[in-house]
């Protein structure tokens, strides 16, 4: 493999369930892509194109049938903890306070309590949730909960963040605000992210490039560069932007819905 500075690269990844039996199903095949440093790469595709399975493989939760995953030029196999993973559900632990939820990953890594607290406090303040440190998740709104989940992901300072439809359960206003916030933080903290989404508008708003997958078995159909500046990406102005309309239309036509 060529050595580059890609924070994440996959090569010829494929996953086959129940191989060599009658129930053999190929989730996806020949998925090769390279995530550039400090970019957001969106993955869109019809339901059942294996997006979630792809994330599981990248996160090391599930082995690939063929191919490999490299994080910062290091091959990843049967290992976890190298990427930050944020799911559709916020998955906050209801018995833990906000700050203890943010600290979860740091605890798992065995960091000292004072270090964990300091790091978590920094994030909580950055996200404007100061004052809610001791609140239980049950008392927070959906948007606040998802912010806490994002902080928990960031706390480990991962180079690569996997976002698995993290905004799909939120109402429109909250979603729009959170998209902006997440974009801002990812660029400020110089992170790279892969975003799986059903929402083409979200992909165009947030991503630098969009990977379009085909129907199952998922293969890469196209890779679309989204040429919009950070300033263009204001959600209100963006809707009226001709380029937004163009990309939206182009991606829509490529999805085999």
């Amino acid at each position: 493999m060529v050595t580059t500075n890609a924070p994440l690269r996959t090569e010829n990844l494929s996953v086959v369930f129940n191989p060599d039996t009658e129930t053999e199903v190929t989730a996806f095949r020949d998925i090769s892509f390279e995530l550039k440093s400090e970019e957001i790469l969106a993955i869109v595709g019809p339901s059942g194109c294996g997006k979630s399975t792809l994330f599981n493989v990248i996160a090391g939760l599930q082995p690939a049938t063929t191919g490999q995953v490299e994080v910062k030029n290091r091959q990843v196999a049967d290992a976890t903890g190298h990427v930050g993973y944020m799911l559709q559900k916020d998955m906050l632990l209801p018995w833990r306070t906000v700050i203890d939820n943010v600290c979860l990953g740091l605890e798992v890594q065995g960091l000292a309590k004072s270090v964990r607290r300091a790091r978590a406090q920094e994030l909580i303040s950055a996200f404007g949730l100061a004052g809610f440190e001791q609140a239980k998740p049950g008392t927070l709104s959906g948007g606040m909960r998802q912010r806490v989940a994002f902080m928990r992901t960031l706390a480990l300072d991962p180079d690569v963040i996997l976002l698995d439809e993290p905004f799909s359960a939120l109402d429109f206003q909250t979603r729009t605000l959170l998209q902006l916030e997440v974009m801002k933080i990812i660029s400020e903290q110089k992170k790279s992210a892969v975003l799986v989404t059903h929402d083409i508008g979200e992909a165009v708003t947030m991503a630098d490039r969009v990977l379009v997958l085909s129907r199952r078995p998922g293969t890469i159909k196209n890779l679309v560069e989204i040429d919009l500046s950070r300033e263009d990406r204001d959600p209100v102005k963006l809707r009226k932007n001709d380029k937004f309309q163009y990309y939206f239309q182009a991606l829509w036509e490529q999805l085999e819905l």
């Binding site: 599981n56 996160a59 090391g60 939760l61 290992a79 976890t80 903890g81 190298h82 990427v83 993973y85 799911l87 559900k89 998955m91 632990l93 018995w95 979860l104 990953g105 605890e107 798992v108 890594q109 480990l156």
Partner: peptide, 23 residues
């Protein structure tokens, strides 16, 4: 999904037990 989250954080089985399964 909670178990999946713990695995993605790199938690061992004992850690997952203490922090998630027991509570």
């Amino acid at each position: 999904d909670l178990l999946k989250l713990m695995r993605s954080l790199g938690a061992s089985r004992v850690q997952t037990w203490l922090k998630v399964v027991v509570p």
